[in-house]
Design a protein around this nucleic acid. Structure first.
Lengths: 202, 202
DNA sequence: TGTACATCAGTGAACGCGCGTTCACTGATGTAC
DNA sequence: TGTACATCAGTGAACGCGCGTTCACTGATGTAC
C-alpha cells in the first residue's frame, strides 16, 4: 500500500493530485512540488514519469478530452431527432466542463500544455469527431448543403462560450422562474435557433 | 523625461509594460518585478499606484473592456440592417480580441483580476450594454418576442468561442479558397443562421 | 516673490520563501541461467 | 528453486533563482502664508 517503496500507479495519483490542486488554485497556482507533496511522494519523483510540469499537465488535458468524448458519445447514442440531439450534445459538453473544471481549464488554455504531444492531439481530434457525427446528422435530416466544418466550429464555439460565461448567468435563471438551470434554457433556445437557421438557409 | 525623478505617468507606463509582458509570456508569466524593470523603475514603485499585481492587472482588464466597447459602438454606429449589424458587431469583437491579446486574456480569465473592483465592473457592464443595443435592434426589426438576454448571451458566447477556437481555424480558410479570413466566413454564416433562426422562431 | 513645510513618488537594500533541477543514492522488481 | 545481476522507481540533500513584501530613505512637487 502507501507504505511500499514503489507506489503502484504513481502517474494516476499525480494526475489526480494535479486536478485537485488546479481546482483549488487555478492552473497558474500549480507546482510540481505541491503535487508531489499531495501524492505523498518526494518532489523529484514526478520527473520519472512526466519529465516536467508541462508533461504532467498535458497528460491531464488528454484525460479530459477522453472523458468529454465518452460523455458526448454516450449522451447522443441513438438520439436521432435533431433538436433532442443538439441539446443532448450541448448538455454533455457543458456538464463535463462543470464536473471537471481543472481538466477543462487545461484543455482550453494552451498555456500549460504541449498541444503537439501525440496523445493529447489524438484525444482532442476524437472529441471533434464526436461533435462532427452530430453535425452530419443535422445535414442528413435538415439540409444536404450544410457546411459541416463551419457548423461544427460554430457549435463548439457556442457551447464553449456558454461554459466560460456561465458565472454571469445567474439572473437569466431567475427570469425563467423555473427550476431549470439557466444554461439548460439557453441550450434549448440555442437548439431552436440553430435548427431553424440551418433549415432556413437550405 | 526619463531622467526625471518623477515619472510623469507611471500607471500608464506600467499598464503598457504589463501588456507587453503578458503578450510575450501569457498571464501566468507575469511578475511585478519584471514589469517594473521594463518600465525602467524600481520594483517597489508599482505598489504606490496599484497596491499589488492583481491591482495592476485589474486595471489593464478594465482598459480592455473600454477599448472593446469603443470599437463595438464605432463599428455598429448607424448600421441598421440586421445582418450587416451582426457582422459588424462580431467583427469588432473578434478584431479587438486579436489586436489586444493580453487585454483579452485578462478580461476573460478571472484568475488574475478582481472582478468586484468598481472600475472593472463598470467597464464590463458598458460592453454588455453595447451588445444589448444590437440585440434590441434585432428584436425591433425581426421578432418582437425575442428573448433579449438569452440572445445577448448566446451571441457573446459564440464570438468569444470563435476567438478562443481561432488557433484551430486554419483549414477552414483553405476550404473557402478565397482571401477572406476564415473567421469572417464563420461570422457571415453565423449571422445568416442567427437571423434565420430568430425570424423563424417568431 | 520667497520661504517653510507637508505630501507624494520613487529608491535600493534586505528578508524569507517556494520553486525547478541536479545528482549520488537505495530499495524493489524482474529476468537469465 | 536459487542465485546474480540489471533495471527501474523513488529519495533526500543541495544548488541557485526570481519572486513579493517591507522599510528607512531621498528627491520632487505643491501649498500656505
Amino acid at each position: 500500500m502507501s507504505t511500499e517503496y514503489h507506489h503502484g500507479d504513481l502517474p494516476t495519483a499525480l494526475r489526480a493530485a494535479a486536478v485537485d490542486l488546479i481546482a483549488e488554485r487555478g492552473p497558474a497556482g500549480f507546482s510540481l512540488r505541491e503535487v508531489a507533496r499531495r501524492a505523498g511522494v518526494s518532489h523529484a519523483a514526478p520527473a520519472h514519469h512526466f519529465g516536467d510540469a508541462q508533461g504532467l499537465l498535458t497528460s491531464v488535458a488528454a484525460e479530459g478530452f477522453a472523458t468529454l468524448t465518452d460523455n458526448m458519445v454516450a449522451a447522443t447514442q441513438g438520439v436521432t431527432d435533431p433538436r433532442e440531439r443538439l441539446i443532448a450534445l450541448g448538455t454533455a459538453y457543458v456538464d463535463t466542463a462543470f464536473d471537471n473544471p481543472a481538466h477543462y481549464a487545461l484543455m482550453v488554455t494552451h498555456e500549460f500544455t504541449d498541444e503537439n504531444e501525440p496523445e493529447l492531439a489524438a484525444r482532442s481530434i476524437e472529441a471533434f469527431t464526436a461533435l462532427m457525427d452530430t453535425v452530419e446528422l443535422l445535414r442528413d435530416q435538415l439540409n444536404p448543403d450544410l457546411d459541416l466544418e463551419a457548423t461544427a466550429i460554430l457549435l463548439w464555439a457556442t457551447v464553449h462560450g456558454l461554459v466560460e460565461l456561465s458565472p454571469n448567468l445567474g439572473h437569466v435563471a431567475e427570469s425563467t422562474g423555473t427550476e431549470t438551470r439557466a444554461i439548460d434554457t439557453l441550450l434549448a433556445t440555442f437548439a431552436d435557433t440553430t435548427i431553424s437557421g440551418i433549415t432556413g438557409i437550405g
